[in-house]
Design a protein around this nucleic acid. Structure first.
Length: 565
RNA sequence: GCCCCCGUAGCUCAGCUGGAUAGAGCAUCUGCCUUCUAAGCAGAGGGCCGCAGGUUCGAGCCCUGCCGGGGGUACCA
């Protein structure tokens, strides 16, 4: 599609003597079914040329040499509209998708660049709840999107394996925990003592000091504390690993916060050397008042470190080791201030790469109007959600397609498709309310809808038993719907580019739904495998282009595309 | 108190750097399975785009105020 926009931009540019990139920016898609395909609104030129937009449009329309891929240009009020030659677009797009297949949509725009993504990052010793799903799934998708455009990605699972909460947990386990229960069901036992701790600390705030004291011991290497912490960590990692495997997610690094323990003193020293720190209320802070922010706490009054201290060390370490061009933190909005402080302190330290760091924030998952809260024990285990989705799909398969092979595998893939896709059903900044009804919906704008479309198209290809002619005659695709589908297919690379620009996988989800829906409308009333073999071949090629594009797009979202379901 | 985000159809959300008649899905109602998977398709109803001003040739989108909701705000992450 970009190719055509460029053609127009260059033609108008040489006609008017204006920079073509400026025109390129202004060219837009027309509202569907009217006014051709691409439009150039003439409003911005009105002042410069001292003529009305409508006048400018008709002037250009009359005199401009029609760019070669177009069959028509006309002025419609203040808009100059262009219609692409349908044979050209059909040949170009289907030809391209056929040739590129699995790589359609990929580009080398960012070859040689490196991106670091900090995502998922659950806290150890706590269950992996639906709350963690968002960062995990969004981060994974952004990673794939960046990779598809040439970036070399480093996905880092910055496990929350350090901090005061572990002091609390150690204290709580020593006081209320049970060895046997820990052996049998580690995460549930840890959750239960953690919840107990927060119940009790409501009544007796001295418990918080106990927790802090145990964290201090842990940081100082106390044997008992370290031994318990190690066990908590081991149990959690086993649980997480199981879930990541199910979701098909891999990290280049699983370096949690504790990894940076020995790297913090250097950062603290550097801050002090650069004169950025001061002691306030017995704590070591960086004063950020000039920037309208509360002070950034580097060390507590008992000398123990804080979250941000570890993040500073981590950022420095990552820059030194990966030399990233961009670093993305896929973390909830509620940590916005934390990241503003982090980036500001890095900037004050003179790290010029601070401006390459970005907080990709997303809205939290709520449950029935309330926030999920680990502290209060309000958790929905992600595994339970995935299991339920899988079982529900299995039931539907039993009902609709009992002959299906590999039922369990496909039920799992489709269940995951539903749960994952739901995370892309609105912009990432939105808060989402978890409901079983939505998570287990397989109709309408859902993952299974796309997977189903893909499966039907796969089946179509299986049913075409004849040999595809080596030269498919694209000129046979003359129906309006067929040409429109090609135009839509051509927009796929643009959807990826805007998804990348705004760290917004949602754009790809929307695009795929539009594509699938447009194709399904066509497919409902037009038979593909017709008697006329040449026509059948041409339509089948179109169908395959749609299937491949859906599959590629679903991959970028982290969803698999079964061929039968 | 201060800072940030949100308010569009009954519900959940789109609406690209302001641009051509505000769009989907769910839910409700009505049709379509002797032909490529009905997890599909077609159709219907449903909107002072929170309220009030302002900027502009043009505002759901930008600015100001107000109302309503959410989040953050020094020893949690």
């Amino acid at each position: 599609m970009e190719k055509y926009i460029t053609e127009i931009a260059e033609a108008i540019s040489s006609y008017l003597g204006i920079d073509s990139s400026e025109i390129f920016e202004n060219i837009q898609f027309t509202p569907p079914d009217k006014f051709g395909d691409l439009a150039f609104p003439c409003f911005p030129l009105a002042k410069k040329l001292k003529k009305s937009p409508a006048q400018i449009a008709s002037d250009i329309a009359e005199k401009l040499q029609l760019p070669e891929s177009f069959e028509e240009q006309r002025a419609e009020g203040p808009y100059l509209n262009f219609r692409i030659k349908s044979q050209v677009i059909v040949r170009d797009i289907i030809g391209l998708i056929n040739a590129q297949s699995e790589t359609y949509g990929n580009s080398e725009d960012y070859n040689g660049k490196t991106v670091v993504l900090d995502f998922s990052s659950p806290n150890i010793a706590k269950p992996f709840g639906v709350g963690h799903l968002r960062s995990t799934v969004i981060g994974n998708s952004i990673k794939r999107i960046f990779q598809s455009q040439g970036y070399r990605p480093f996905g880092i699972n910055h496990l929350g394996d350090w901090g005061t909460q572990f002091g609390k947990l150690i204290y709580a386990f020593k006081r209320w925990g049970d060895e046997k229960r820990l052996e049998d069901s580690p995460i549930r036992e840890l959750l239960s003592v953690y919840v107990k701790f927060h119940e009790e600390s409501e009544k007796d705030s001295s418990l918080d000091d106990e927790g802090r004291a145990w964290f201090k011991k842990l940081e100082d290497g106390d044997t008992e504390a370290v031994e318990l912490w190690n066990r908590f960590r081991k149990y959690s990692e086993e649980e997480f690993q199981r879930i990541y495997e199910r979701l098909g997610i891999k990290f280049e690094y699983q370096t949690g916060e504790s990894f940076y323990n020995d790297k913090m003193p250097a950062v603290v020293e550097e801050l002090e050397e650069k004169g950025l720190t001061e002691v306030s209320q017995d704590a070591l802070v960086v004063n950020l008042e000039p920037y309208n922010m509360p002070p950034c706490l580097i060390k507590r009054k008992d000398d123990a470190t804080l979250y941000i201290t570890r993040d500073l060390a981590a950022a420095e370490y990552r820059y030194n080791n990966f030399h990233f061009d961009t670093m993305l933190y896929v973390v909830g909005v509620e940590q916005q201030l934390h990241f503003q402080q982090l980036f500001k302190v890095l900037e004050l330290m003179g790290k010029d790469w601070a401006s390459d760091c970005r907080h990709v924030e997303f809205g939290r998952i709520r449950f029935e109007g309330m926030d999920l809260s680990t502290r209060k024990g309000r958790v929905i285990f992600l595994e339970d959600v995935l299991d339920k989705a899988r079982d529900m799909v299995a039931r539907i398969i039993e009902e609709k397609n009992p002959e299906l092979e590999n039922k369990e595998l496909i039920a799992e893939q489709v269940g995951l498709g539903a749960v994952i896709f739901e995370q892309f059903s609105s912009r990432r900044g939105k808060f989402v309310t978890f409901s079983w009804e939505k998570a287990l919906n397989f109709e309408g704008q859902t993952g299974p809808y796309l997977q189903y479309t893909h499966a039907r198209l796969s089946s179509l290809e299986r049913k075409f038993t004849k040999q595809l002619p080596s030269e498919v005659d694209y000129n046979l695709l003359t129906e309006r719907a067929e040409i429109d589908i090609c135009k839509k297919l051509g927009q796929y690379p643009l959807a990826i580019k805007s998804a990348l620009r705004e760290y917004e996988p949602f754009f790809i989800a929307v695009y795929l739904l539009e594509l699938a829906s447009e194709f399904n409308r066509y497919y409902q009333k037009t038979r593909v495998l017709v008697e006329d073999e040449k026509l059948a071949a041409a339509r089948l090629t179109l169908a395959r282009a749609v299937r491949v594009t859906i599959k590629n797009g679903l991959y970028l979202l982290g969803i698999s595309s079964p061929e039968r379901m």
